[in-house]
Nucleic acid binder design. Structure first.
Lengths: 209, 209
DNA sequence: ACCGCATCGATGCGTTCGCATCGGAACTCA
DNA sequence: TGAGTTCCGATGCGAACGCATCGATGCGGT
């Protein structure tokens, strides 16, 4: 066997370069040449790792998606002593990518989201990332709700059907986080305002159980 | 005076063509040639109406933004007999662009949203559209809340400070609608699910006042 | 020591892009 | 009706794109 190269490592290195470029110029600013230059490899190397540009972009999406979900899981594992309710707050805050240091990831995420509306391949990848986050949220919501009130709700039966309502609440929280991310990105909402909205929504959620 | 052309009409005609192309291929699928062909004018005519592609795209964004907000206002004017609460439901449903016949507008909106994260000009235009919708929502929320309970809240003072809370609720509703739009677009949520989420959120909102 | 093969960097190809240019058509007014 | 002005459609241009190709290179097995 002749010369061997760490393919996985190189793919990740290129994916990272793609993410940087998406952050700076959007999805349409990604070209094979620029990616190669940013990753400090030759264009040939990029073309060896990925047969087409499409495949490369897809890999980058998986990369950033995994990074976000991994960070969420890690954060949960780091402080599991708190209540499920506060854990959900952490998760929502993390998913919304509001903090300055995650602004790049937010831009990347939004770019891929828009791309997914046109490119079915990206949509499929994106859905699986969402599904994983959503499952986590449903679990936390049911845990928190089950802990505070069992088998009934104080206000009009919002949580009388636990599973279905928890799922709806998770859907809402995920959509709210995404919308806030976008609004902050385009400068229509400050980070503080977005956090207020998120906290108010969570407060309302717990008040209803 | 020599030959005169309806500039405004032509600009709108071209903006409509841009929207169609954005719907089909995303923002990066928009080229001057394709726009000209779709609008059934020559490329020269397009270049006469808009000095640059950027200017053309911006105009298309204003066009679709106005179309959405106008539809919302029209719908409010058509049935002003209902309560402010139900009116807000209508507005939220309209803004979320969930109905099949507005799927194209939703795709266009998402494409521009992602573009705005990179292009400051688009962001500015988008913000003004959002501001107009938001103001409308704040007004409806305060109207609805003021009608049902004056000067106090039943649950922990959520609405004791009317103006600030109403604004926060409007922010949440707008972000939620946007997030749901995106999730439906990429096929991660069905229209029915999105409507459930929206209705549940509104129900929670009124329950808190 | 040497040969074989995976990988590399570079270059070429065909296409398409945004934008500039220009001759003629179309229309108004004297 | 003819001159003058505005607009249109076609074409050209330089750049950048994705992708294919091809020697050069260097490591690994015999």
């Amino acid at each position: 066997m002749p010369k061997q190269v760490d393919h996985a490592g190189r793919r990740q290195q290129i994916a990272e370069a793609v993410c940087q470029l998406v952050d700076e110029c959007g999805l349409e600013g990604v070209t094979l040449r620029d990616v190669a230059a940013r990753a400090e490899v030759s264009m040939g190397a990029v073309q060896r790792c990925f047969r087409t540009k499409e495949e490369m972009v897809q890999c980058a999406l998986v990369y950033v998606g995994d990074r976000v979900t991994e960070r969420v899981r890690h954060r949960l594992k780091a402080g599991p002593a708190q209540s499920a309710a506060s854990e959900l707050g952490l998760v929502a805050g993390e998913v919304a990518l509001l903090r300055e240091e995650h602004r790049a990831e937010a831009r990347i995420w939004l770019a891929f989201l828009a791309g997914a509306a046109v490119n079915p391949g990206l949509a499929e990848t994106l859905r699986s990332s969402y599904a994983s986050l959503e499952e986590l949220m449903v679990r936390l919501i049911m845990e928190a709700a089950g802990g505070s009130v069992v088998g009934g709700s104080a206000l009009g039966g919002v949580f009388t059907d636990g599973a279905a309502s928890a799922r709806t609440e998770a859907h809402a929280l995920l959509a709210l986080a995404d919308g806030l991310t976008a609004h902050v990105l385009i400068g229509h909402r400050t980070v503080a305002e977005a956090e207020d909205v998120l906290h108010a929504h969570l407060a309302g959620l717990w008040a209803r159980c």
